[in-house]
Design a protein around this nucleic acid. Sequence first.
RNA 1: GGGCCUGUAGCUCAGUUGGUUAGAGCGUCCGCCUGAUAAGCGGGAGGUCGGAGGUUCAAAUCCUCCCAGGCCCA
Length: 1071
Amino acid sequence: MSRKAAKKPYPEVDPSPNWPALEQAVLDSWERDGTFQRSIDQRPAGEGGRNEYVFYDGPPFANGLPHHGHLVTGYIKDIIPRYQTLRGRRVERRFGWDCHGLPVEMLAEKELGVAGHKAITEYGVGRFNEYCMSSVFRFTGEWERYVKRSARWVDFENDYKTLELPYMESIIWAVKQLHEKGLLYEGYKVMPYSWAAETVLSNFETRMDDAYRDRQDPAITVRFELLPESGDELPTDLLAWTTTPWTLPSNLALAVGPDLDYSVLETDGPDGPRRVILGEETVAKYEKEFGDARRVGSVKGADLVGRRYRPLFPFFESLGGKAGRAFRVLAADFIETDEGTGVVHMAPGFGEDDMRVCQENDIPTVVPVDDSGRFTAEVPTWQGVQVFEANKPIIRDLRDRGLLVRHETYSHSYPHCWRTDQPLIYKAMNSWYVKVTDLRERAGELNQQINWVPSNVRDGRFGKWLEGAIDWSISRNRFWGTPIPVWKSDDPNYPRIDVYGSLDEIERDFGRRPNNLHRPDIDEFVRPNPDDPSGKSMMRRVPEVLDCWFESGAMPFAQVHYPFENKEWFENHFPADFIVEYVAQTRGWFYTMHVLATALFDRPAFSNAICHGVILAEGGRKLSKSLRNYTDPEDIFRAIGSDALRWFLVSSPIVRGGELTIAEDDSQVRDAVRVVINPIWNAWYFFSLYANSDGVEAKLRTDSKQLLDRYILAKTSALVTGIAESLDAYDLSGACQRFVDHLDALNNWYIRRSRDRFWRATLDGVADPDKQDAYDTLYTVLVTLCRVVSPLLPIITEQIHRGLTGEESVHLTDWPTLLDDAADPQLVAEMDRVRSVCSAALALRASENARVRQPLASLTVAGANGALLEPYADLIEDEVNVKQLKLTSDIDDYATFRLQVNSRALGPRLGKDMKKVLAASKQGDWRTLESGAVEVAGFELQEGEYELLLQPKDGVACEPLPSRDAIVVLDLALTDDLIAEGRARDVVRAVQQARKEADLHVSDRIHLALALPDDFRVAVLQFSEYVKEQTLATQLDLRPDASAELAAGLSVHEATLGGGAARVGVARVAA
RNA sequence: GGGCCUGUAGCUCAGUUGGUUAGAGCGUCCGCCUGAUAAGCGGGAGGUCGGAGGUUCAAAUCCUCCCAGGCCCA
């Protein structure tokens, strides 16, 4: 025996490693060796970038720490590029940072203690923006740490930042392009507005947790007097209800639901009889006011449309009359009757719906309220009064004029400014728009060229969103962002607008070149208006900055300073081959990128997009830092590991657009360790243990003739093809599923069934060919597995692959083609059948209380395709522990046939008669014809329209295969020999346990002493050679029952055999 | 209030163009092999597919309504 002296070709493997520590070591080695960069460098770009796989990285805001959601995206962003790299493509991965926008400004406001437009202006826009600039990168270090720890390969050094001058210059170029294409215009948009902080709020801010609070407001019902028309019998009023009386001075229209019914009531007023009109379903609510009124008729809303009415106030009278379109009844689709009167007052300056409906009817927008929420000179009566303060005098005024029908107090949930605690108002603000409505159709066409995962996003979420797209408001009344590059004359008498698309153009007109496009520097670029002969009016930049979504949407070209530089590069890298984000980005980054690509290049911006779902905490709630309902990813990295987290996330429904609920205790991540990581590691551990112990060095080889080897090679070949198929289709969880299935075949079939081939003695230091085949095959399979799974488990496969091959990195290898010729679907199918035979036999043993260690005389497989199992007889006998496998086609003793109708095939032919056929076949009322066909309920079924399945007879110990075409039967009769052999195996089992407890190596030879109950002693005597061989015993002592005198020097272990006490003594003997 | 999505085993989810006895993993129960792995293996139980109607020879699947939850827009 030369085992001890043999070289160890493979590293010593820890059977249960500390995963986080192992991961950190691998990550460190990548960092040290520049493995990521080399994985890119070794792939040529090809002519015109033809061999490149283009990936765009959507830029995150770095003003908070990454959570599970970012990690899902990050893992996918890593997996696809790693896979494409394996396939030989060059995949550059450039990180990007979203630097501008409200989140940054909000943080700055909070930390500087300056709230709102006014305070910031006083504080100084320059200082404010400097602060934003300095704070925006505060978390980049953390981000980089998380990203690197998650084993995501991405280039942080060559990153792009949306605040850099070249990036911003590309942005203003894009704005100018839109302008030249007639896609840019200035208009109004109703926004949530904080009059206290003098700032517009984003939707995001109004949705913050504590923004909505209960508030009491006046709710009043007001009369609007219709202008008389021919056919009117009496003066008539429409009743409208509002909770914002201060908007009534700005009323320009009324709206009704065209399909709603309205009641006409007649009352006796102080000036004689009048009529009022209100929604039929709302009449009951006005019992108090109109309880004694006479109902004189009913009209449809549509009948009221077009009627003119007398303005409540004189302030905007000029917009009505003959010239204007205001002060009419309009049709609207959103009118309800559960609150109010079914008639809605419209103030287009203060309501989004109002503005939309009024614009559709050519009614202009008026906004007689200034930045601090006070009425302007346009409403002289209340000029300077804050709008909420103005409610009372307005109501009093209406009451005095007899226009107030009802005044009540209304309690409702109302949004408040999160900074000042004051109620918000909705107010039309000046805004710049991209005319998406003009692009909509083309954007929809280009969307058809995009491969979305899941596929329903294309015509669903994204497609629908495109169809309903409205013009995109791209300006923000804020400070920290790329400026809108528009200069306007400050004198409306000499109007002029200039849009600048480059630093050169600005330099040309202003005589100097900006070195910073941010405010306030850029605002200092002022020049005389060339169109003003008086020379007094000046061209000044409009105050707004761009929506930061415009900047991220411009990322494909702005990241390379296109078109000022890298023109050719851009042409070769647009559209991207692949991007991924979560599903809400169909309204965010996916959308803005698509809109800009459509507008500027008439091409889609990306060819393949994964749109993953959202992560929820237990109970379906949102992940919330304050609720602490999830574990910080870094803690998971530290405690469990990144590959496990990666596996858990990307094998979940989330990568198919679904939701994923994560357990607070991270048990799902631990499950990934147990289900995937430990098994693949154990396979490697097994290999290294025996290969080292034998001194066998394995080679990549696929030509073993051994059946199990052929099987696992064929199975692995199918896995290689399957994973490529899944990943080519961007189906990550499908790829994961294939691997899990494969692991079961490898560990719990191939390795388990091949074990004795590995531990068979080496003859004179020369491995016998079968043993070498086993090593080579397992080695080949493991190396192949590591490669194809490396995108999904990048760290653990790296470690194993290094151990196996000594090569530096699995991520520098090529996609394996070695097993392409090893595919053998028939062999795989046969082996699957073998496994189902064994499984059925083991189930039968379990139900018959026949422990597997007890050998049985025979296993019979009765039914179809018996010959197919012939070559696998040894395997089945060994697995099921029977002396003989019997194959027969004679089933009569055990089972009968049952007719199984193939509804899918037969249904279309028989239609209604299916019922009869199904009933008859269920009752067994059918017969086989001479021709081989089957007759049932008077119908003749042809081949393919039915199947004959086996049904075990009652009282027979047998088990059908899942395919129901064969049945397994065990011979349960025991002979003395069989019983003795079973006992011998029990003893072997006890000895193996003792070996393990004594911490012996798997190849140690031992001195074995046994003190056994009599019947077991006899059994061991009978099978002593077998026992010695199985336990590697060179010497065997047998003593009476539980002898207390086992020799000194032995490690003694207690055991129970057949209900009696036994003692097992083992000691290593020198090799 | 409107639009979209979801509802299948105790939990997390699959379920192809409607077609046989609705599947998987985890958990649970019972058992067991083992000279890699008890952080293992095998087997069993567990579902009137959210509810009610409808279409059909046939519905988890198609249609309508309702209920519950989520997202988006008001």
